[in-house]
Structures are given as C-alpha cells and as structure tokens.
Design a protein around this nucleic acid. Structure first.
Length: 582
RNA sequence: GGGGUCGUAGUUCAGCUGGUUAGAACGCAUGCCUGUCACGCAUGAGGUCGCGAGUUCGAGUCUCGUCGGCCCCGCCA
C-alpha cells in the first residue's frame, strides 16, 4: 500500500483566528460534532489545540462522503478561512470558519461509547476501559500538557540550582522495611529476585558519597499497597538529595520550586512556608498533614469536663481519657438529623461517637446528659460564640486527637476556601515509633534518617523520645513529600539498624554494601522526595491523581484497559523456575 | 483484611410496600431541512436489569454469595 501523502500542517484547528481570514489552510483533526442542515453541513473539527467549524456546501461534496463521516472520524480538510457572518463567542476560533474545498477521511470511527466532551458525565469505569478516548477530553489534554510543562519547569529550576539528573536502577533489591515490594524474578539466578524501587533512597545517598553533591531525578516508584484517591501502585517522585547543606537551605530551594511550579497557572505562592512541629500538629489538628484552610482546630476540654457531673465522662476520665473537641463556627443551628449524621460519621471514622453541645432557642442542649447551666458556663468561660457547635470526643489522648482530627477534616470541607493554598512544613518527627504488632521499634521515616545530635545520647535510654531531623511538606491536607537529614556515620547507622531489631547478619546481607560506602568519606547530606502526581493534582484542582496519570490502575489495582495483571504462559514460569500456588 | 456506596438500553439515570408489555433524556439508524453551533422536525431500532444461587404462585425490586467501579479504615519505612 502506498504511503498516504499528508500535506504539511501549517496550523492547528484551534489556532485559527480572524487574522487568518482569506488564507488557504490544511487542518487535521477528529470530528467533534456534525450539524446537517440538508444542503449545508457544519463539522466541528477538533485537534489538540481546540475546535474549528468547517462548512461543507452541497455543491462541494457528494452526500455519500458525508454519510461516511461520524463522530470521531479523522479528517483532513483544506479550504479557505472566512470570517463568520455570525461569530461564536464560545469558541476561540469562533470569529472564523473553514470553507471546505477538499475533505479526506483518514480514519473512520465506530460510534464511541462516550464523547470526549463529557468527562464528568461518564463513569470512571468506562473512562478507564476507553482511556484513549477519555484522554481526548479537553480537560485531560490540559492536565497532561500541564504535567509536561511542570516536569520541564522542575528540571530547569533544579538545573539552575546546580542539581544533576542521574538515573538509578529500576531493578534492585527488596527491602526488609517499608512497603511491600514488587518483585521481579531473575531468570539467570532462579529463586532470586529483583525488586522495583519504592524510592531511590540508597542510590541517591550513594551518589552523595560519590561526590555529586546535588542530585535530582523525576522517577517512577513502586509500592505494592492498597490504593486511594492519592495513591497508585506506581507513581512519580521528584527525588532530591544534597550534601553540605542544612534543612533551612533545602526548605528554601523547595519553596522556590513550588513557587515556580504554581506560577504555571498564574498562582502566586507566598514564601516562606509555615513550620509546625509534629507534636503541635497532632495536638491542634490530630494529624501530621493538617489542612490549614479549615478555620478551627482541636481544643482540650479535659479539665472542664470534670465539672460536668456526667457519669459517662467521669468514668472515661477515671480511665485516663482526654476530652478533645472542636468549636465549629455557625454550626449551632444544625438540625437534629445533621447532628445524628455527625455522630454516625464519628463511628465510621473509627471512634465511639461524638458528643455535641449547642445553644438552642430554648436554652443550652447537649447529647450528653448534663445540666444546661454547665454548658452555659463552658460557653461563657471559653468565650464560645452563641451560634457555635461544640463537638467532643473522649478517649485515650492519641485516639481522641485522631478522631477529632478526622471530624475536623470531614466537617471542615464546607469551610475550605478552595482557591487558597496552605503550604506547611511539619518538622521534628520522632525518630521511632513502637510497632505493637512486631513488638519492636520502627522507623517513622526510614532507617537512614538522622536523629538530632543532641538526642543521640537518648538512643539507648529513651529511644521513643529521640527526635529526627525529618520533615514533611504538606499542602491543603495532602502530604506532598517528605525528607530528612541522613545518617552519614557508620557507627550511628549500625546503631539505628540494631535498635530497629535487625540482626547483624541481616544488616550485613541487606545493607553491607551501603555501610561499607559510609566508610569512605560520606559527606553530611539530606534530601527530600515530592509526589509529582499529587503536586499536579493540587496544581490542577483535581480530586484524584488518576486524573494526572495517563493510564492509572483502579482501586483494586487492575488496569481495565489492558486487563493487567494477567496470567503468563507455563513456559515463562518454567524459564523463571516459578511454581504458582493454587 | 474490614466498613460504606454504586452496578437497569451505546451513555447518564428513573423504576414505590415484589405483580401483566422495564421507562426518560442523550446517543444511534432512516427520511426531511442552506447558517447551524446542545440545530430543528418525523419515524424507528436498541435491555441475559453485572453474574450465580435462594425465598416466593411471581424477583429489576427481598436474602445470601460472587465480580467490578468509587470513598474510607487497616496498610502505605
């Protein structure tokens, strides 16, 4: 078959303007819609830059040709650009139209299951199945254009700041800590496995030992864990590491990077970002990634609650419970039904329920059996606005804070200013937490995180009191990224591995190469990794990272387009020395 | 692993306390129509009610199981 002769495209459909009037042009595109008026036909032709109205006169084309054209047919049209008698103000190209002098069908299309315009009107299931059609949607086209631009801008910025883009292996070792690994069987060494990287952590530290001083990579990471709106099994990180610098210097670079990226949408980011120690974040917001757009925070009512004379509360207090609460402005007028729903929500979020208090028309009321004057006294003493709702939870301190935090997040949605950006550094994380299941210490961040120098003496005596030089970047309640200063001294790294309960043999086997590297002049270094997909989601105002990933997986980790994961042939399994358990 | 929610025409949905022939809109097909841009008008086709079992004289509707989408908890160093 002879190759089709495609005329050189001079201009995109969506780019035609009044200034092109009178020109003869050739455009390529997909039929977005058609309007047949008998002897006259209008075709809205779409390419990546937008729509253009093509006029087809009866005198020009045989009706047979038009019969073959339908939605999503691929056409090339040549003709003259003319000014419209009646412009369409809704179309950027609406001042002009193209009078067809030649039309060729380059590809026909079956009737599509949905049209590219209707992203919100189609189930996500169908969008996944026909992702290539879904991606024709102008909003999706915008998202991926923005993704491309953001990627370039991050690269250019980091290049200017002296960072080198260095690739690290995708095939490496499984890690004993952290998320579940995706394993890749070795054909040559049967029974041995590579793992896809959860992050390039060790490699980027080795690059610091190698003396590159400033490294970055925009790279794919893999974690075999359950999915969420902001979690996919493979995702992209902006990975950064630098030597001979402190956290303040790193923070400043990341802050400027954020300003750079958000400028793509004309959004001004004010610097520097707020900083909040982890402890304070938990106390005020019940989470380590608070959404600062919500205009109320968690308050402590433990001392006040002792005076209420409630058997329920008193019993809880005797068991060491704390009473944490939210004062929600203007919510005092919520209906009984709404308040019941709040209580139900508290249960669904993993709590026992929530107590409410408010001032009704006929005096103070509460779902807790306490005297109205006690509530009145509380409102008076705490200077709570008369129209505010008080929501309380009683539990051990941490669960109470977490539940109150979740309620704050849930109920605060209506109070958020969607346009506001609240960046936040959460700092001073504990180095370890106690893993109840495994009955041992676990790293809060990862095992390479450095403790504060002044806390090193506490490692043996009070390991849980040791603070790390670790930080998370949070934007509007989403964890955008996290990082830390790394341990660069062999002895300290060994010590931390031991505290994590790793056997010496295991340390040697898994991390021997790494510890060895620390023997040869490892510079002090620190770094951070930012979730590129999450960053784009927030930049574009999307609710899910699936909207910024071209071919994402469903929440049960399936690809509805390709059907992966799928079985493989017995021959492939044999070659790898793998037997599948039934 | 657990909780919630959804699954009916190509699509988005309606379908009451179980009852005769499962509807609407858009899309699609055919015809008419020379200034439409959500074109209009007329006619028509199109359904294993996700799948399987059960209860019942009778199931889109009730029960159980199962598969799939989404949200959340656990998990995500």
């Amino acid at each position: 078959m002879a190759e089709e002769k495609l005329l050189k495209r001079g201009i995109y459909c969506g780019e035609l303007r009044q200034e092109h009037e009178g020109e003869i042009v050739t455009v390529y595109g997909w039929v977005n819609s058609m309007r047949l008026l008998g002897g006259l036909t209008f075709i809205d032709l779409r390419d990546r830059e937008g729509l253009l109205q093509v006029v087809v006169n009866e005198t020009f084309a045989a009706p047979a040709l038009l019969k073959e054209i339908g939605k999503e047919t691929v056409l090339t049209v040549s003709g003259r650009v003319v000014k419209r008698a009646k412009p369409n103000p809704d179309l950027p190209s609406g001042q002009v139209e193209l009078v067809a002098e030649r039309i060729d069908i380059l590809a026909s299309s079956a009737v599509p299951p949905f049209v590219p315009e209707g992203r919100g009107a189609v189930s996500e299931e169908l969008r996944f199945k026909y992702r290539y059609l879904d991606l024709r949607n102008p909003g999706m086209q915008r998202n991926f254009r923005m993704r491309s631009q953001a990627n370039l801008r991050v690269r250019n910025f980091l290049d200017r700041e002296g960072f080198l883009d260095i690739e690290t292996p995708m095939l490496s070792n499984a890690t004993p800590e952290g998320a579940r690994d995706y394993l890749v069987p070795s054909r040559i060494y049967k029974g041995k496995f590579f793992a896809l990287p959860q992050s390039p952590q060790q490699f980027k530290q080795l690059l610091m030992v190698s003396g590159f001083e400033r490294y970055f990579q925009i790279t794919r990471c893999f974690r075999d864990e359950d999915l969420r709106a902001d979690r996919q099994p493979e995702f992209t990180q902006i990975d950064i590491e630098m030597s001979f610098a402190g956290a303040d210097e790193l923070f400043a670079i990341i802050e400027r990077l954020m300003r750079e990226v958000f400028a793509l949408r004309g959004i001004e980011v004010s610097l520097p970002f707020r900083r909040l120690p982890y402890r304070e974040a938990m106390e005020k917001y019940g989470t380590d990634k608070p959404d600062l757009r919500i205009p109320f925070q968690i308050e402590d009512f433990t001392a006040a609650a002792a005076a209420w004379g409630s058997d329920l509360i008193n019993g809880a207090l005797e068991r060491g419970a704390k009473v944490k609460g939210l004062v929600i402005p203007g919510a005092g007028g919520w209906s009984r039904k709404q308040l019941d729903e709040v209580n139900e929500t508290a249960r669904k979020l993993g709590g026992k329920g929530a107590i409410w208090m408010r001032r009704a028309e006929d005096g103070f009321k509460s779902s807790l059996k306490i005297a109205p004057y006690a509530i009145a006294a509380l409102y008076e003493e705490r200077k709570i606005a008369a129209d505010a709702l008080v929501l309380l939870v009683a539990d051990a301190e941490l669960p109470a804070l977490i539940l109150a935090g979740r309620l704050r997040e849930h109920l605060g949605r209506d109070f958020q200013d969607k346009k506001r950006l609240e960046f936040l550094w959460v700092t001073d994380f504990p180095l370890f937490f106690y893993n109840e299941e495994e009955k041992r210490l676990d790293s809060n961040h990862h095992p390479f995180t450095a403790p504060r120098p002044e806390d090193i003496p506490l490692l043996d005596s009070q390991p849980l009191a040791v603070q790390a030089i670790a930080y998370d970047l949070v934007l509007n309640g989403v964890e955008l990224g996290g990082g830390s200063r790394r341990i660069h001294e062999l002895a300290l790294q060994k010590k931390v591995f031991q505290l994590l309960g790793l056997e010496d043999r295991e340390i040697e086997k898994r991390f021997g190469f790494f510890l060895n590297a620390l023997n040869y002049g490892a510079p002090p270094h620190l770094g951070i990794a930012l979730g590129f997909d999450r960053l784009l989601m927030l930049l574009l105002g999307e609710d899910s990272i699936r909207e910024v990933i071209a071919f994402p997986k469903t929440t049960s980790s399936l690809c509805l387009l390709t059907g992966s994961p799928s079985t493989v042939s017995q021959r492939q399994l044999d070659e790898l020395g793998i037997t599948v358990k039934k």
